[in-house]
Design a protein around this nucleic acid. Structure first.
Ligand SMILES: [Mn+2]
Ligand SMILES: [Mn+2]
Ligand SMILES: [Zn+2]
Ligand SMILES: [Zn+2]
Lengths: 146, 146
DNA sequence: TTGAGATTTTGAATCATTCTAAACGGCTAA
DNA sequence: TTAGCCGTTTAGAATGATTCAAAATCTCAA
């Protein structure tokens, strides 16, 4: 059902892990594969159930561990909305998130560098930003299957 | 220790509650007073302990209830950072939040309308925004007592 | 003054996440 | 080859913010 990682994907997984002294494991490979296969910002539980189809016996704790590892080495971003379960996103380009309240789905919104620059400028001089999160909430109109 | 609400503040509390068919109660008055007295984005627990000094016997559940009520009638905003406890903010002007990772403090950042407009423009045409959240994380430099 | 409905209170329940400790696996030095 | 080391995985318990349930209390219009 789920394709394996291609050479390039496996390479970037290996490289990111190696950079922080960690190894590729079958579990990590599958979890990462699941994230790349369907970029719909799944929760831990969703990742878990998708991964189970390829690797029965995989444990939920391991999915937590893998995702935490990926976040730690910069391969994946966490996406939070209100108090809902944390979601995971393998899109490394700077982007915002739009959460559709009627479907619960989370969409990537491309973020022009120019806007990021402007945002940085509204901060007092002594505020040093490490990360900026922008999230929209609303609804998508019309019969749109996306 | 904590000043009462002034005429204007009590008025806007009453008005906001009335609009959604709810009443002023001593508990709600105190919780709102606590929020206005120290605009440092307190957690529920912090609001609770501050309010206890004025009204011993107040319950934590009531603080949850009051804050939920205020959010519901638009008097107060929730502020979330990662998976930490929800914080509350009575600043109704459009603004972003900067969270200082070294102190844990959350600062209001004034948000030019112009930037909000630009942000809305990066969305696909059929995306209707209800709210936009912008949050910075980083550190404040130098010996700054703010 | 009274009763209906709103609010408060206590304590239990929920549930995503984290923690603990034991089992596992691969790798290397002897 | 074997023994030990260390990172990883696993199952299950613990945590902690938040929500829920039910009973007590309060408010206010009639
Ligand atoms: Mn968020
Ligand atoms: Mn946030
Ligand atoms: Zn994303
Ligand atoms: Zn604020």
């Amino acid at each position: 059902m789920i394709q394996n990682l291609n050479k390039h994907e496996r390479e970037s997984l290996h490289e990111a892990l190696a950079k922080s002294g960690q190894k590729i494991t079958p579990q990590r490979e599958i979890v990462y594969t699941v994230l790349l296969a369907q970029r719909d910002h799944p929760t831990v539980d969703e990742v878990y159930h998708r991964a189970l189809e390829t690797m029965p016996g995989l444990s939920l704790a391991t999915v937590y561990n893998c995702l935490e590892t990926f976040v730690g080495c910069g391969l994946v971003r966490q996406v939070n909305h209100e108090r809902e379960s944390t979601r995971y996103c393998p899109n490394l380009a700077p982007h915002a998130h739009f959460r559709d309240e009627s479907t619960g789905r989370v969409h990537d919104i491309e973020l022009p560098k120019e806007i990021l620059d402007q945002l940085t400028k509204i901060l007092p001089a002594n505020f040093e930003t490490e990360t900026i999160e922008i999230s929209f909430q609303g609804r998508t109109k019309t019969s749109n299957k996306n």
